[in-house]
Design a protein around this nucleic acid. Structure first.
Lengths: 124, 124
DNA sequence: GTGAATGCAAAAGCTTTGCACTCGA
DNA sequence: TCGAGTGCAAAGCTTTTGCATTCAC
């Protein structure tokens, strides 16, 4: 994998935030440093970085978000402000495995909680 | 909510399968009975039925799927054949709640396991 | 030098929407 | 009857792709 300026910058943007930006938001951030980057390159690089295990894609009802923290951890999606929060990893996988039919092999666990974050909850 | 033939048939299709069809697949099924149904009506009805609590939308990396079983339960997505399977409800919510920051209110829990189903796993 | 990566623009999904017509209550 | 719902087609988004050019190695 060739480390182009675009690729490096996309990775840097994702590494320095915990806000789980969309591809469009990554583009905006990257353009503050490299103004001529195209949206196509952002998508291509997000895919390449994902395949290299450096970036994780989070699919929610609100769209696809990207995360440089690839260790498995659950997310909380606020249904009012659409922000995505990281949660600590709370899952005893034993309980899950017990629910699996014979012959099913798990490679990933996506756990997403939805609701209202503390900030939105304190507003009327 | 007016119970049109289209709406009734869409609900019937979803109720008689456990295969979590996409909107396109719902359309195909409904058209065996009502050949002139449009894709727009399928989407509009899925939305209406969802808002009425009669249908659940499942957002996965493979696209949106629909389910007439609205009781919360986790899913297993096979990464080879893309089929979606129902799992029994195994989650002790207490463990999850402990992971939540102060002030966050949970309205839904989406748990998705990914991997290889027994059928695909037994093939090379 | 050379092939992987880029920018640009077009294309390809998937989902929503505008509009005149239909039909369920 | 009459307004919610429909079919059709167009529009809207997001994501992917083709192609000539650029640039990291």
């Amino acid at each position: 994998m060739r480390m182009t300026r675009q690729r490096r910058e996309i990775l840097a943007v994702l590494s320095r935030t915990r806000s789980h930006p969309s591809a469009e938001e990554v583009l905006r951030q990257v353009r503050t440093t490299l103004p001529r980057v195209s949206l196509g390159s952002v998508y291509r690089n997000l895919k390449t970085l994902r395949e290299a295990g450096l970036v994780r894609e989070i699919v929610t009802a609100e769209g696809r978000r990207y995360d440089a923290v690839t260790a498995p951890h659950p997310h909380f999606v606020c249904e009012r402000c659409s922000r995505v929060f990281d949660l600590a990893r709370p899952l005893p996988p034993r309980a899950l495995r017990r629910a699996l039919p014979q012959g099913f092999a798990v490679s990933q666990i996506h756990l997403e909680l939805r609701g209202t974050c503390s900030e939105c909850g304190s507003q009327p």
